[in-house]
């Protein structure tokens, strides 16, 4: 297992170099992709999952199944059932806690609208993670290739590479990118608290952002909780979703719950007319 993955790594690096050397003509037109950096990481033996039914366990099993495949054969998608969303913003906060997001940085706000006139009124709640667009306008604009689409469809930001120019922020039609100003929630209080100084686990790394270190000074966004996926876990906003309204899985797996869900007439994607090809689907 290990050697095989190591090989894949090696070739990934070569492919990448090739892309650079061949130059703009080749690399420019295609959506930029990087091969699985560490397939080994995701295929380490993970502890067994418990028995049981329910959508969460099912999706988690499907996730484990997908992890058995090479990275480029996975196609992560998220499905949000707006009929089930109760507008609680647990996902918003779960995400913030999971990724240790500072003030001003939010990956999954839940937008609320009131519709209709008294007494025929209702409210709609629309959670908005990053759409992990297949044609992501945020990617080509980056002057340092710090953001790119991974083979599994996730649009990643390399915090070590990002120079913090924020061009990508302007390019995203979904306001899915926010800038880390290096601030903390307990600024201007008697004492900074430990939950804020604990490093972020994003991308399977340990990001200590104290003293202006990355990701402070970087643009940040939802990355489908790659670090959790690697650990065989569903994204935080999926597991914490109070309305059981958020689904996640591998689109390439035709038996998956998500594949089942999006084969219905009540599916939409946001701002599809922008040609972004979002990988987040909404059920109405």
């Amino acid at each position: 297992m290990r050697t095989k993955n190591a090989q894949r790594n090696g070739s990934a690096r070569r492919d990448f170099l090739k892309a650079i050397l061949v130059g703009p003509a080749l690399a420019g037109g295609l959506p930029r992709q990087v091969k699985d950096p560490e397939a080994a990481e995701t295929q380490r033996s993970l502890p067994d999952l418990p028995e049981g039914d329910g959508p969460i366990l099912r999706m988690q099993r499907e996730l484990r199944r997908a992890l058995q495949k090479p990275l480029e054969q996975r196609r992560w998608i998220m499905v949000i059932d707006l009929r089930k969303c109760v507008g609680c913003s647990a996902c918003t906060i779960g995400c913030i806690a999971e990724n240790r997001l500072p003030p001003g940085v939010v990956y999954r706000p839940v937008v609320e609208e009131e519709i209709g006139a008294y007494p025929h009124v209702t409210r709609r709640f629309t959670p908005r993670p990053c759409m992990q667009c297949d044609n992501p306008p945020c990617v080509p604009v980056c002057p340092v290739k710090a953001t790119y689409k991974r083979p599994d469809g996730i649009v990643e930001i390399n915090y070590e590479q990002c120079i913090g120019c924020r061009y990508c922020v302007t390019a995203c039609p979904y306001s899915a990118r926010t800038f880390d100003f290096g601030e903390n929630y307990t600024d201007r209080t008697p004492k900074r608290q430990p939950y804020e100084t604990s490093p972020s686990p994003e991308y399977g790394r340990s990001w200590d952002r104290t003293n202006g270190k990355s990701p402070a000074g970087n643009v940040r966004k939802c990355q489908f909780c790659i670090h959790r996926l690697n650990a065989g876990m569903l994204p935080a906003c999926v597991t914490t979703c109070v309305g059981l309204a958020t689904y996640f899985g591998d689109w390439n797996d035709h038996d998956s719950l998500v594949a089942e869900l999006i084969g219905k007439p009540n599916v939409i994607r946001l701002k599809e007319e922008m040609g972004t090809q979002p990988k987040v689907y909404y059920l109405l």
């Binding site: 604009v141 710090a146 990002c162």
Partner: peptide
């Protein structure tokens, strides 16, 4: 820039598609 010390990366990254 968020990371002033990294401006040089623009020269080494060959981001052909980026207007910036």
């Amino acid at each position: 820039l968020g990371h002033m010390g990294r401006f040089w990366k623009v020269y080494t990254s060959f981001a052909w598609e980026s207007m910036m």
